[in-house]
Write a protein that binds this DNA or RNA. Structure first.
Lengths: 323, 323
DNA sequence: TTGTATGCGTTATCAT
DNA sequence: ATGATAACGCATACAA
């Protein structure tokens, strides 16, 4: 019984007699033997491991996106080498580690899109898939939701609700998706000149607490919007709670609200928040597809951008208050 | 310049002249060369990869635990090979994959503790660390929070709030942690004979929706508890929303409530839910420590159990209603 | 301190 | 259909 026979027994399409294969498989089961993928990686130079770089798993949207990605990649026979990154500083060392393990590609959901991050990712010379980031580079592909168009629609929805004093709760400046949403929102508001020109602009860091705090600060400043679009649902939930608890305001009766991401909590009764569903399933499906093509052996640097339309999910928080 | 010189240049304690090392490092930088860890895995038989098996990342508790684990393991120079598992069926194949990549250990947060899962984990003959599971076996160590004691304390808290008709919202039967919490709760209730003997028992699957539905069913059945302990926060949030929306009941005025996990949402104003904090930081720290000892080269099968005391976090949902 | 040689467990190529 | 052999890139033992 030669080594090659064993190898062939475990290779699906190999030329081996069924009897031989059976014998090998039986022996393997008896000896608790499993083929070792490590040498195969050395030979082929392909590990079938994908480095996944995440931050902010405390945002349910990213947590569930990761879960879906895990399922999707596994279906493709790809393994996930997970790295958590706090800020751009640790990104370089994280990528270094990933590269030393010879990952075939990198998928990242880092909202931040600094230029140095883009360079670090491009320098790896392996396919990179970014979620919701405008990073560009020869090896970088991105899957983004149509943030600007959604921001635009948010403005339309608020205006239809009769909002006269809109507020915009932005995420971190480095979050390009947030910026695009804000841009679209502001553009959308311009279509109605009756809306008072001074948009109330609030700033958070994408967390529930920051949304809460932003509203507290706003209330202390005396501003009283009748409609609010938040760059994400977490902040929107915090904002809604602050409006209710600290401002004694109701939603949607006093303030009409919208968020982004459609996290499970947006659908919870206590919030019932209108939101934009990024359709994580499709996002992930597209990312997987991009990955698959970029991983073709003959494939060079791929750099595509796929836009997924965010779907408006209307809930009670934008019920018109015409009465 | 020999190949071994390069190897030594990248090995921290190797015997090499500083000048030589410098030369190698410079050349490496110029050529964009990185040492490949794959052959090292072959030689040493140790990959410094840890298989992490997760389910239910939609529960914020597990998502944040994973995030912390990622940080903690990275500090130890360990990589995470992430696998998502839906049910016990796919566990075997997931472990198979992990083993073929020669992971040094497995960490799992699977709540389910079936006997076949335990056997599959033990059969790998590598260290296994389980969160909140009573799985046992020669290679299996577990880190659990003191579920039973916490259940006991939950009973005491509810009784002190004057609860006369308690309800218990259980998780899936296969969730051993949930069973222990329920057991402790029931024991704790026995200390007060004035509490009506028939505890209202509700069942969910650890999700928000299941908590909501369980309450709806309960209300339809005519039961009216004045206190509820839920096996986790997600279900508690669902239950609270159902009590408010469908039952027109207030918390804590009409129903005193407690959950488990202390997920961020428990602290959100809309819920303000008293909960047990599993202290994920400590859970993860202990797990990492266990891992480190179990990964010592001379270490054989380690099988320890560490109990972390869950900390009561009192919020408005258990404010006494003596007035 | 540095270079040479060996081997890790596979897959691919070639020969049988 | 099967067996023998080379090669993958590094770490290590040994020689120099």
């Amino acid at each position: 019984m030669s080594q090659s026979a064993v190898s062939r027994a475990f290779s699906p399409g190999a030329s081996i007699a069924p009897a031989t294969r059976r014998k090998v498989l039986d022996a393997a089961a008896a000896l608790n033997y499993r083929p070792n993928r490590i040498p195969a990686i050395m030979l082929s130079g392909r590990s079938r491991m994908v480095g996944v770089v995440v931050g902010g798993l405390s945002n349910p949207f990213y947590a569930s996106a990761l879960e879906r990605l895990a399922i999707s990649l596994r279906a493709e026979g790809l393994q996930i080498l997970l790295v958590h990154v706090d800020d751009a500083l640790t990104l370089d060392s994280a990528l270094d580690h990933l590269l030393s393990y010879r990952v075939d590609a990198v998928v990242t959901a880092l909202a931040v899109g600094t230029r140095s991050a883009a360079r670090a990712l491009s320098d790896m010379k392996i396919p990179v898939i970014c979620f919701n980031s405008r990073l560009t580079g020869p090896w970088i592909s991105t899957v983004v939701s149509n943030n600007r168009a959604a921001g635009n629609m948010a403005a339309r929805v608020l205006l239809e609700c009769g909002v006269k004093h809109p507020a915009w709760l932005a995420g971190p400046v480095r979050n390009t998706a947030s910026r695009a949403r804000g841009q679209g929102f502001i553009e959308g508001l311009r279509t109605d000149s009756s809306v008072s020109g001074d948009l109330i602009e609030l700033h958070g860091d994408d967390s529930y607490e920051s949304g809460y705090d932003a509203i507290c600060k706003m209330l202390a400043g005396g501003a009283r919007p009748d409609g609010l679009f938040s760059s994400n649902d977490l902040m929107a939930c915090g904002a809604m709670d602050a409006l209710r608890q600290r401002g004694g305001l109701r939603c949607p009766e006093d303030v009409v609200m919208m968020g982004y991401d459609n996290i499970p909590q947006a659908g919870w009764y206590a919030y019932d928040l209108t939101s934009f569903d990024q359709q994580a399933e499709r996002l992930v499906a597209v990312a997987t597809e991009l990955l698959e093509t970029a991983l073709q052996p003959e494939s060079g640097p791929v750099s595509r951008t796929c836009v997924i339309e965010a779907k408006l999910v209307a809930r009670r928080s934008t019920t018109p208050q015409f009465i």
